[in-house]
């Protein structure tokens, strides 16, 4: 057995940096969930919805808050806080009754949760020991050993497959996707439950070629049955603006619903269960 399923003596004291905790999360796995957002992400996606989460450190950002149409004010906001596993588990366990009732649990998202793999591992151990369903929402960009540390503690992986073509991936996320694809294959081969998540960015990820590539890539991996299409929305853009950051995405139109639905249909035709919007 590679991993122990119990918390070691001082695991609860392990700490990490998160930037948010959201209760009654409805789109991050089965049932009613609490989602913990880890700070820090190795990728630099043009369409990122949480640009304030990129850097692994706690940071002070200037946030523009529009009080009225004419009156913009700025104020500093600290993004990120250091918390221990024990502290976080107290907060997570507050909603136990809702998890029990709905078959829900806890989701670790980010940022990239595997960037703080020891913290993540302790949280997963603590969650498991309390009988919680665990989901890890990952970009896949982490050393293979990091996945080895946690995969048997995770009930469900939400795994982003953004772009299959390596050069395009490099361009829009700042990193090669080789590691991502290798980790994906390994997770699948080890029999983990993995749901594929594709952010639908028109002209970038949401192209005929990329979706065909994606199907070609996942086809041999028989454990993959579910795909979620995450339609682009302007929520992220608004955040870039408020944090005074410049988005490289430019003016991307939100794709019409029927376009997304047509994509979903085509994937269904390939035998996958497809959901739209998580």
């Amino acid at each position: 057995m590679r991993h122990s399923n119990t918390t070691n003596g001082n695991g609860g004291a392990v700490s990490g940096i998160i930037f948010d905790l959201k209760k009654f999360a409805l789109h991050d796995g089965p049932g009613i969930r609490t989602t913990v957002f880890f700070k820090g992400c190795p990728l630099d996606c043009w369409w990122c919805h949480n640009p304030e989460a990129r850097k692994p450190q706690i940071e002070s950002l200037c946030l523009k808050r529009s009080l009225s149409e004419s009156d913009d004010v700025s104020h500093g906001e600290t993004v990120g806080r250091r918390v221990t596993v024990d502290e976080l588990m107290v907060e997570i366990m507050k909603d136990e009754v809702f998890y029990d009732q709905s078959g829900g649990g806890v989701t670790f998202s980010g940022g990239e949760p595997l960037m703080q793999v020891e913290f993540l591992r302790e949280l997963l151990l603590a969650s498991r020991s309390r009988g919680l369903h665990t989901t890890v929402d990952t970009s896949g960009y982490a050393p293979a050993e990091a996945f080895d540390r946690i995969d048997c503690l995770v009930d469900l992986f939400y795994y982003d497959l953004k772009i299959i073509d390596e050069a395009t991936h490099q361009k829009y996320t700042g990193m090669s996707n080789r590691l991502i694809l290798e980790n994906f294959e390994r997770l699948c081969q080890n029999g983990n439950r993995v749901q594929v998540r594709i952010p639908m960015i028109p002209g970038i990820t949401d192209t005929d070629d990329n979706l065909e590539d994606t199907v070609r890539f996942i086809k041999p991996l028989s454990v993959i049955t579910e795909i979620a299409l995450l339609p682009y929305n302007r929520f992220g853009e608004d955040k870039w603006e408020r944090f005074g950051m410049v988005s490289r995405l430019g003016d991307v139109a939100v794709p019409p619903e029927e376009v997304i639905l047509a994509r979903a249909e085509r994937l269904r035709a390939c035998g996958y269960t497809v959901s739209v919007g998580g």
Binding site: F24, L26, G31, I32, V97, F98, D100, Q101, S102, G104
Partner: peptide
């Protein structure tokens, strides 16, 4: 349907308490 089901769970949980 998903939202509806989850709100139903919310209600059931409250009633359980």
């Amino acid at each position: 349907e998903t939202g509806l089901t989850k709100v139903a769970h919310l209600v059931r949980s409250y009633f359980k308490m």
